[in-house]
Design a binder for these strands. Structure first.
Length: 972
RNA sequence: GCGGGGGUCGCCAAGCCAGGUCAAAGGCGCAGGGCUUAGGACCCUGUCCCGAAGGGGUUCGUGGGUUCAAAUCCCACCCCCCGCACCA
């Protein structure tokens, strides 16, 4: 699915000590080896356990995996590992996508000795003497799938490799599966035939995809245009190409290139004058053409043509901006709304000599004035003039400014321009609303025809100029089918989608989907079973292949199960995937033993449907919708997909990753630089939550991660089992924090919010632990053990090699990787201890601030507020809960608690000034006890004697201002 | 234009759905201190402005509004990114 680019220059470098990286890498190698040997990630159906099937769109293997792919597939691995720890039987398999044109074309280039292609391969680590092997497309598939697998294994992915496969006729088993899928779609009436425009190479006689073009022509797609039929008095048609047929009402003249040669040709029975390029294009778009002669552009100058719509006679004039090789080579001039036309007209008016050269009288242009036909807010009646003047355009050679002006006027007039009275029945309408109607009208009256063309010159790799051809026997998937859409929308409604906003996006995309040309020629893929000249294109053969992972274990291992491709008759798939047919008969037809058929059927029905598909946001608008559509078309409801999680595209140091910027990083390079664990760490920190925002990979984060990882391994293994045995109040707080962390992390993991979960699981927990050590001095032994275990397990989905290493070093058996996920005990979570801890922090901060101001003090007196203040606050809180507003609540509460009026007014002020005290407050005895226990800690931190006392027993001159959660502090 | 995502205290980035505990988490950077032969790492403190008592002032793209109270809700506007199909 994702195409992979190629490294040219490597600007990003690691800063971390390579010796440290080697240490981590050694640990990783050890665990990767054990995982593979033990087969702990090989998934077998187990009806006693709930299953979880998670997938990553298989990559297009024309290159190596880079940080972008690594990011998304890491999220899949995290999901898989997490679910495994949660007790699910998890299937995570991986295949490779070879369908499409790029590999074929790249192999061709190697065969032709293309230097760039060769250097691309070398920069990906291919030895020079092996380059020639890449002239065979099949070798690409083999080489890059091997290398992807290698990279993914060292990355630590928990994939069941027995289910690996690649697509296309290179893998006949897979092709049989695709053939079956399309036969069934055809049975259901979801396949049709029709015409379709393509970019065409007239020399090689083939469709020209992006991969068939030099770089500078990549991404240019064909557009709709209109040929307007102006008529000479002798009946010859002068066709002008335009993207703005509505401006026909403002045509003042026709532009022609005097030096150019034009053809006189028969087109659908009329005599046209146009360039050879458009004639070719017309021929390939179903028009009958026949060349009759040739004419110089100059000889047409001065002639008058009839505007087919307005009937106005306008002259043909010379203009050097006209590209005789684009469109028909002849342009209609609408100076009011087209900057080029406006400037060309002005040029001509100020250079009458030019006219004389063509034997014209300068008076020809004198009478020509722009004809406004669109009203545009914020512009004069001649918007083209405004755009030209504001840019200070000198003449028609000022391409850059003119192109800018053109796109400004075109797009504004298209979306906001209102047609004027002189456009007849279109008057008052907005251009974009009526454009199609206008074209229909022009066409049905014979004033114009629709064509497809390329907006600029586009060349094929072979050097020939391409044009647009309409192919007539194109196969379509009928995505516009109402019923199909309806079922698709139902499925989307029933799915778990992360982030939630993609639900509407998916529905909208499905709803607007048009029929899809699903067959191509000359590419790798699976031949269409009923019309084998065609090959099923790449997006269309990758819609339900997740089902194939459940079969691949059997089909891709003939050495074990003895199944041959030719045995995979449609009946086979009908039986194992749809449960249709009688097993004895299917066995008879296919020659596959009935028991094996049943085993495969059980395997499929156990794992299916897909529980979660994790993908980059780019696939939202095509693949993911197709994925859903084909499932609902082929499978019964119980096998419809259950979930999708989307993430953005990776950035490196805040910039889009690109070869030219030199910040393009291959996964294997990143692992060499920083280790797999540190890369995983930095990828998660880049932003592994489910969101449409782009994550940002910071190389410095990977540097830090290496050290952080080694620190954790050392700390955990060196401190497991140390600590004091007695239990302190602060231990309760940390225990509460631990359980709270598990709870939060679990909730975030369930929402595929992996960065947030990781920050909570590591950074926030570490900070809490640091605070605990500061507060407690020596930690409690049991609690420290618990912390180390929990911390390690929470990290396991993210940095599994490291977790397993720590697990082993602290003397545990088995793997942290597949150990049950830690559970939390709700009764151990004590919010009031957190609040009390906040109070301690607050006292410490306030005391520090006071010390800065007071400069010196001998001791600190901390006075906890009197009980009646707590009672009062409790009343206020109660009143607030009942819906009272703050001031009201305070007033109500005062009536209930009797106290001296002087104190009362003071309190009103401080409560309304510090509303946080309302939320923060804990029972007075808890606050007092915690602060009392913290006396020693506070005095250690402040380097001063600290005394905690109750207001009732205090002699502090500041005791009156004490509030619940805000003890009075007095510096003596 | 339509649809989607964003614009937060030097940079990165939480918070926004469920308004008050938000001068606003965390990281980086910067400054000071501790540790250290030194550097790194690590730990602590500070990092919008003013302040000799925990306070005050001005901030969360811009401008309005709702509210006792707005980064958070409403309205209008500005800027950036992505998709709008045959590249995978």
């Amino acid at each position: 699915m994702h195409s992979v680019g190629i490294v040219i220059e490597r600007r990003v470098k690691p800063k971390v000590d390579p010796a440290l990286v080697s240490k981590v890498r050694a640990i990783e190698d050890k665990w990767v080896d054990r995982w593979i040997k033990s087969g702990i990630f090989e998934a077998e159906p187990d009806p006693s356990k709930p299953k979880f099937f998670v997938t990553f769109p298989y990559p297009y293997i024309n290159g190596l995996i880079h940080l972008g792919g690594a990011f998304t597939i890491l999220r899949v691995d995290i999901a898989a590992r997490y679910k495994r720890m949660r007790g699910f039987n998890v299937l995570f398999a991986q295949g490779w996508h070879a369908t499409g044109g790029p590999i074929v074309s790249a192999a061709l280039r190697i065969r032709e000795g293309d230097k760039k292609m060769v250097s691309d391969l070398i920069s990906m680590g291919v030895p020079v003497d092996e380059i020639s092997k890449f002239s065979n497309p099949e070798y690409w598939v083999k080489y890059f799938s091997d290398n992807w697998r290698r990279d993914l294994i060292s990355y630590g992915l928990s994939i069941d490799w027995r289910r690996e496969f690649y697509t296309t006729y290179l893998n006949p088993y897979y092709s049989k599966f695709i053939e079956w899928q399309y036969l069934r779609l055809r049975d259901k009436g979801l396949v049709g035939k029709g015409t379709h425009p393509v970019v065409w190479c007239p020399k090689e006689l083939k469709v020209v995809g992006d991969h068939d073009r030099p770089d500078e022509y990549v991404g240019i797609s064909l557009v709709d245009a209109v040929l307007m039929k102006f008529k000479l008095d002798d009946g010859h048609i002068i066709p002008t190409m335009t993207f703005r047929p509505e401006t026909i009402y403002g045509v003042t003249n026709i532009w022609i290139k005097p030096e150019a040669k034009y053809l006189i040709a028969d087109v659908d029975g009329e005599t046209w004058i146009l360039n050879s390029y458009m004639l070719e294009e017309l021929k390939d778009q179903g028009h009958r053409v026949n060349v009759k002669g040739e004419v110089d552009g100059s000889s047409l100058i001065g002639l008058k043509v009839n505007n087919p719509v307005t009937g106005l006679k306008v002259p043909i004039l010379p203009a050097y901006f006209v590209d005789s090789e684009l469109g028909t080579g002849i342009v209609m001039s609408v100076p009011a709304h087209a900057p080029y036309d406006y400037v060309a007209l002005m040029d001509l008016k100020s250079n009458p000599e030019l006219l004389v050269r063509y034997g014209l009288d300068s008076s020809v242009v004198d009478g020509i004035e722009p004809i406004p036909l669109i009203k545009l807010e914020g512009y004069s009646s001649i918007p083209a003039r405004d755009a030209v003047t504001s840019r200070n355009v000198k003449d028609q050679n000022d391409f850059k400014k003119l192109d800018e002006a053109t796109s400004e006027i075109y797009s504004k007039e298209y979306y906001n321009g209102v047609l004027l009275e002189n456009t007849g029945k279109w008057a008052g309408r907005i251009v974009c609303e009526v454009k199609d109607e206008i074209i229909d009208w022009l066409e049905s009256n014979g004033y114009a025809i629709r064509i497809y063309t390329l907006p600029v010159r586009v060349y094929c790799r072979c050097g020939a100029r391409t044009h647009v051809k309409i192919v007539s026997d194109q196969w379509f998937l009928l995505y516009s089918d109402e019923n199909w859409k309806k079922m698709t929308l139902e499925c989307i409604d029933s799915m778990n989608l992360y982030p939630p906003e993609i639900r509407e996006e998916l529905k909208k995309t499905a709803f607007n989907l048009r029929d899809w040309a699903f067959t191509h020629k000359g590419e790798l893929g699976t031949h269409l079973p009923w019309d084998p000249d065609w090959v099923i294109e790449s997006l269309s053969d990758s819609t339900i292949y997740m089902a194939y992972y459940t079969l691949a274990k059997y089909l891709q291992h003939p050495e074990k199960y003895g199944i041959k491709p030719e045995q995979l008759k449609p009946e086979f798939f009908d039986y194992v995937l749809l449960g249709r047919g009688n097993v004895a008969e299917v066995s008879e037809t296919t020659g596959i033993p009935a028991e094996l058929l049943d085993e495969i059927r059980r395997e499929f029905s156990y794992w299916y449907p897909v529980d979660l598909r994790i993908s980059g946001k780019d696939l939202l608008y095509n693949h993911l919708v197709f994925f859903i559509m084909h499932h609902v078309a082929i499978f019964p409801r119980e096998f419809w997909p259950r979930g999708i999680s989307i993430n953005g595209w990776i950035m490196v140091s805040g910039e889009k990753m690109s070869k030219s910027k030199g910040n393009f990083i291959l996964l294997r390079d990143a692992i060499n630089y920083w280790s797999a664990s540190a890369v995983r760490w930095a990828e998660v920190m880049a932003g592994a939550d489910s969101t449409l925002e782009d994550p940002n990979f910071e190389p410095s984060m990977a540097d830090l991660a290496v050290e952080e990882i080694l620190r954790w391994i050392d700390y955990a293994s060196g401190n497991y089992g140390v600590g004091r045995s007695e239990r302190l109040k602060i231990d309760d707080w940390f225990e509460s924090a631990l359980h709270q962390t598990i709870k939060k992390v679990t909730e975030l993991m369930d929402k595929t919010m992996y960065k947030s979960a990781f920050v909570e699981a590591y950074y926030n927990l570490q900070n809490k632990f640091k605070w605990y050590l500061r507060r407690a001095g020596t930690p409690n032994r049991d609690l420290l053990k618990q912390f180390i275990e929990i911390q390690t397990l929470l990290l396991a989905p993210f940095i599994p090699h490291v977790a397993d290493e720590v697990w082993e070093r602290i003397g545990k058996d088995g793997y942290a990787s597949i150990h049950p996920w830690p559970t939390y005990d709700e009764s151990k979570i004590k919010p009031e201890l957190d609040l009390a801890e906040e109070i301690v922090k607050g006292v410490l901060e306030d005391a520090r601030e006071l010390l800065r101001l007071v400069k010196q003090a001998k001791m600190v007196r901390v006075t906890v507020a009197a009980k009646w203040k707590y009672d009062l606050l409790a009343e206020v809180k109660k009143a607030l809960m009942e819906g009272a507003r703050l001031n009201e609540a305070i007033r109500i509460s005062f009536r209930k608690v009797s106290l001296p009026s002087k104190l009362a007014s003071q309190l009103v002020q401080s409560i309304s000034r510090n509303p946080e005290t309302i939320e923060m407050h804990v029972p007075v005895d808890v606050e007092y006890a915690v602060l009392k226990e913290a006396e020693e800690f506070l005095s250690r931190e402040l380097n001063l004697k600290v005394v905690v006392e109750r207001e009732e027993e205090s002699s502090s001159p500041k005791k009156d201002i004490s509030l619940p959660s805000r003890p009075a502090i007095y510096m003596e």
